[in-house]
Design a protein around this nucleic acid. Structure first.
Length: 734
DNA sequence: ATAGGGTTAG
C-alpha cells in the first residue's frame, strides 16, 4: 500500500551540517573526470562523500553543463546516475535531487534510465512531488512503458491530480501510449488549460496519426477564444500537411498573415511543408524562394514534396544544393528514390550517407530495407540484414516487418519466415507482411493457416491483411476459401471491401474461369468500377481467351483511362490468342495515334553483389555477344523439345519472323542467358522483372529449367514463379 | 508543448 506521509530526509541533514574541507574540495572540480579523481582520492582517505547532497549536486551540474553533443556528456550522466542507483536504500532522496536526475536523463534522451532511476528512488522512499510526476510521465511516454497508469493512480493518492502540470503530463503520456481517448478525457476535465496543455493534446492526436482530429481541436480552441502562439501554429500546420488538407492549410496561412506577419523560421518551414505535402509545389516553391537563408527543414520538405510527385531530379538538385544535410534530409532523399522505383539509387545514396559519417536511425533503415525489397536482390538483402543486426535495429518492430517483406520480395521465404518466427513482438503489419509474402510465392494454404493463427493470438486484421489474403487465394486458385474470406471481411471484421479487394475477387473468379460471375461482381459492387477491377477482368479474359467479355472490360478501362498501356497490351494479346490479327493491328494503330507507349520490359539479376539490368532487345551489355550466343543455344535446345516462340506476346506490327525475334529478345530471356553463363551448375538463378511475365517466357523458363537442370526464380510484377524440372510453382495461376 | 524523413497494401 502506498504511503503518502513524507519521510525524513537524511540528505537534507547532511546539507545542514557545516561543510567540511572535503566538501569544499569537491566544489573545485571543473569536470566530471576531475570530480571522479577527487572522489577516488577522498575514498582513499576513507571519506566516502559520494552519497552526500553536495557531491551529487556538483556531479549533476557538471554532467549537465558538459556540451550535449559530445559523447562524454552521456557517459558523465551515466556515472552520475550509477552513483544514484547504487546508493543504499536508507538514503530517502529529496524530490529536488530526484527531479534533477530525471530531467537530466530526459534531456540526454535516456528515458529508460530515467525510469530505472525513478524506480530506484521510489524503493528508497522518494515521495514524488508535482515536478517529479510530469518527468516520469514524459519518460514513460517515450519508452512506451505503462508506468503512466501507475503514475496516474499515484497522482490521485498524493492529491496531485488536480495540478495542471501533472494533468498536462498525463494527457501526453496517455496519448503517447496510444490511448488518445483517455488523454482527451483528462484534457476535458482540466479546469484550466494553458497553451501548453492545448499543445500537448494537439500533439497527442498527431502522434497517433489522427491529424484531422487535431485540426478539429484547433477549431475548438479558436472558438473558445484562445489565441494560438507560434508553437501551436507550427504543430497545427504540421498536422494539416499530414492530413493533406490544402484548404485548411490555406486558411491557416491567411490567418497567420493577418494576425502577425512576422513569421518565424519554424512557421515558414511548417507552411512550406503544408504545401509540399499537399503536392502544391508551385506555392511551396514560391515560399521557399522567399526564404533567406534557406533552412534545413524547409529544404528537406521541398526535397520530399518533389520526390513524392515523382519529380525526383528536381528533388535531387535541391538536395545537392543543401550546404548541410542531416539524417532527416538524407532519409527524405533515400525514401524519395525508394518510393519512385529507383531502388539502386536509394542504396547508392545510403552508401554515400555513410561515407559522409552519418549513422542511420530506424526510420532511414525502413526506407533502405524497402528499397532493397523493391530491388529484389537477395545478396544485397542478406547484407542489409547483417547491417541491421550489427547496428542494433534487430529488435525494432517496424524494421523487422520491413525485413520480412524484403526477404519475401527477394525470393527467400525461408529467410522471411525465420525473421517472423524470431520476432520478439508482432503487430498487424508483421502478420500481414508474412501473409502477403506467402501469397506472392503462391502458398495460399499457409497464408490462410497463418491468418487463423493471427486471429487466435488476438491480432485484429486490417484492410491490407485482407488484400494479402485474397491475393493468396487468387494466386493459389482457392475459390471457395476466397469467397469465405471476402464475406468475413464485412461480417466478422467490420471492414468494408475497397477497390483492391474487389480487384482481387475479380482476379480470383476470373482465373477460375468464372468470368460471368466476375463481371456480375463488378456490376453489382457498391463502388464505381475503376481501372483496377476492369484491369483484373481483362487480365483473366486474356488468360482464358475470352474475347467478348475482354473487349467489354478493355472498353470500360479505356473510357476511364485512354492512356492505359496495359489495356492495349492485354487486348492485343487476347486478339492474338484468338488469331484475330486484324484486330491486333487495329489496337496497335489506336495506341500509336493516341501516343501511348508500352512500358518497356526490364529484367535484372544480381551477380557478385552487382545488379545487371536488361531491357527488351538490349544490346548494351558489355558481354552482349556472349549473351546472344547463349540465347541462341538455349532456343535451339528448347526447339528440340518442341518449343517455338509464341508470337501472341509480341506487340509490334512486324512480319512473322521479326515477331519471333522480338519475343525471343524479351528481357527475362536475356537475363536467363546471362545467368546460365555466369553461375555455377546447380545454383539457383534469380531474376526480377518490372512487368508481368508473358506466356511465351513462362513456358520458355519451364523448359529451360528442365533442360539445364536449374531452378529459376522469377519475380514479376505480381508474384513469384519458381521453375523447377519443367514445372512452375504458380501452377499456371498468374 | 514547436517545423522536415518511416514498415504491410496500392
Amino acid at each position: 500500500m502506498e504511503t503518502v506521509t513524507p519521510r525524513p530526509l537524511p540528505s537534507a541533514a547532511v546539507t545542514s551540517s557545516p561543510p567540511s574541507f572535503a566538501h569544499l574540495l569537491l566544489l573545485t572540480a571543473t569536470s566530471v573526470p576531475h570530480l571522479k579523481q577527487l572522489h577516488a582520492h577522498l575514498l582513499r582517505s576513507a571519506l566516502d562523500l559520494s552519497l552526500t547532497a553536495p557531491f551529487l549536486s556538483k556531479l549533476l551540474s557538471l554532467s549537465l553543463s558538459s556540451p550535449s553533443s559530445s559523447s562524454s556528456s552521456s557517459s558523465s550522466l551515466d556515472y552520475a546516475l550509477s552513483v544514484f542507483l547504487h546508493s543504499p536504500d536508507h538514503l530517502h532522496p529529496h524530490p529536488r535531487l530526484a527531479n534533477r536526475v530525471l530531467r537530466a536523463a530526459l534531456r540526454a534522451a535516456e528515458p529508460r534510465r530515467a525510469l530505472r532511476a525513478y524506480a530506484r528512488f521510489r524503493r528508497a522512499g522518494l515521495v514524488p512531488d508535482r515536478f517529479t510526476l510530469p518527468a516520469v510521465l514524459r519518460a514513460a511516454a517515450r519508452t512506451g512503458d505503462d508506468a503512466a497508469r501507475e503514475a496516474h493512480g499515484l497522482a490521485a493518492r498524493l492529491g496531485l491530480d488536480s495540478d495542471p502540470f501533472v494533468q498536462t503530463a498525463l494527457v501526453g503520456a496517455h496519448a503517447a501510449l496510444g490511448r488518445v481517448a483517455d488523454a482527451r478525457g483528462v484534457f476535458d476535465r482540466m479546469p484550466q488549460r494553458d497553451l501548453v496543455a492545448w499543445g500537448v493534446m494537439l500533439d497527442g492526436y498527431c502522434q497517433s496519426g489522427r491529424y484531422s482530429e487535431a485540426l478539429l481541436l484547433f477549431v475548438e480552441m479558436r472558438s473558445s477564444g484562445i489565441v494560438p502562439d507560434q508553437v501551436i501554429l507550427a504543430t497545427v500546420l504540421s498536422a494539416c500537411g499530414r492530413a493533406k488538407n490544402l484548404m485548411f492549410g490555406k486558411s491557416l496561412h491567411c490567418y497567420i498573415l493577418q494576425s502577425d506577419p512576422s513569421i518565424d523560421t519554424h512557421l515558414q518551414s511548417a507552411l512550406i511543408t503544408v504545401y509540399s505535402n499537399c503536392g502544391s509545389m508551385e506555392i511551396a516553391q514560391k515560399l521557399f524562394d522567399g526564404m533567406c537563408p534557406k533552412n534545413l527543414v524547409a529544404s528537406t520538405a521541398m526535397v520530399f514534396g518533389y520526390a513524392k510527385l515523382g519529380q525526383i531530379e528536381i528533388a535531387r538538385s535541391i538536395f545537392d544544393q543543401m550546404p548541410n544535410k542531416d539524417l532527416v534530409s538524407w532519409s527524405a532523399m533515400i525514401s524519395g528514390y525508394a518510393e519512385s522505383d529507383r531502388p539502386s539509387e536509394a542504396l547508392k545514396l545510403f552508401n554515400m550517407m555513410q561515407e559522409s559519417g552519418l549513422k542511420p536511425d530506424e526510420i532511414t533503415m525502413l526506407s533502405v530495407v524497402s528499397a532493397c525489397a523493391n530491388l529484389g536482390a537477395l545478396d544485397q538483402a542478406k547484407w542489409i540484414h547483417i547491417y541491421v543486426n550489427k547496428n542494433g535495429f534487430r529488435t525494432v518492430l517496424s524494421v523487422g516487418n520491413a525485413l520480412i517483406d524484403m526477404f519475401s520480395k527477394c525470393g527467400s521465404l525461408a529467410h522471411a519466415q525465420k525473421i517472423f518466427n524470431e520476432m520478439p513482438r508482432r503487430n498487424v503489419i508483421t502478420w500481414t507482411s508474412m501473409i502477403t509474402g506467402l501469397a506472392m510465392h503462391g502458398d495460399g494454404r499457409s497464408a490462410l493457416a497463418l491468418f487463423d493463427r493471427m486471429k487466435v493470438e488476438g491480432v485484429e486484421p486490417n484492410s491490407v491483411t485482407f488484400t494479402g489474403l485474397l491475393y493468396a487465394c487468387s494466386h493459389a486458385g482457392l475459390v471457395e476459401e476466397g469467397r469465405l474470406v471476402f464475406r468475413s471481411m464485412a461480417q466478422e471484421h467490420n471492414i468494408e471491401p475497397k477497390y483492391e479487394h474487389f480487384g482481387c475477387m475479380v482476379d480470383l473468379l476470373g482465373r477460375a474461369r468464372l468470368l460471368e460471375e466476375a463481371l456480375q461482381l463488378i456490376e453489382s459492387m457498391p463502388l464505381r468500377p475503376n481501372v483496377v477491377v476492369w484491369g483484373s477482368l481483362l487480365g483473366a479474359c486474356r488468360v482464358h481467351g475470352e474475347v467478348e467479355i475482354g473487349e467489354l472490360a478493355a472498353k470500360r478501362l479505356l473510357e476511364l483511362d485512354p492512356r492505359h498501356d496495359g489495356a492495349y497490351v492485354l487486348l492485343s494479346n487476347l486478339y492474338a490468342k484468338a488469331g484475330r490479327w486484324d484486330d491486333v493491328r487495329e489496337v496497335r494503330k489506336q495506341m500509336k495515334s493516341r501516343g501511348v507507349l508500352k512500358e518497356k520490359g526490364c529484367s535484372w539479376m544480381e551477380l557478385n553483389g552487382k545488379v545487371h539490368e536488361f531491357l527488351m532487345g538490349d544490346v548494351s551489355h558489355p558481354r552482349n555477344d556472349e549473351i546472344y550466343l547463349k540465347l541462341n543455344e538455349v532456343v535451339e535446345e528448347l526447339g528440340k523439345m518442341g518449343y517455338s516462340p509464341n508470337v501472341g506476346s509480341a506487340l509490334v506490327d512486324l512480319e512473322e519472323e521479326e515477331k519471333r525475334g522480338a519475343v525471343l529478345m524479351h528481357s527475362e530471356k536475356l537475363a536467363l542467358s546471362f545467368g546460365l553463363i555466369n553461375s555455377a551448375r546447380g545454383s539457383v538463378i534469380r531474376i526480377a522483372k518490372n512487368l508481368r511475365v508473358c506466356e511465351d517466357c513462362h513456358s520458355f523458363m519451364k523448359s529451360a529449367s528442365k533442360i539445364y537442370e536449374r531452378e529459376i526464380v522469377l519475380r514479376d510484377r505480381s508474384r513469384f514463379h519458381r521453375f523447377k524440372d519443367g514445372a512452375c510453382s504458380c501452377g499456371e495461376f498468374w
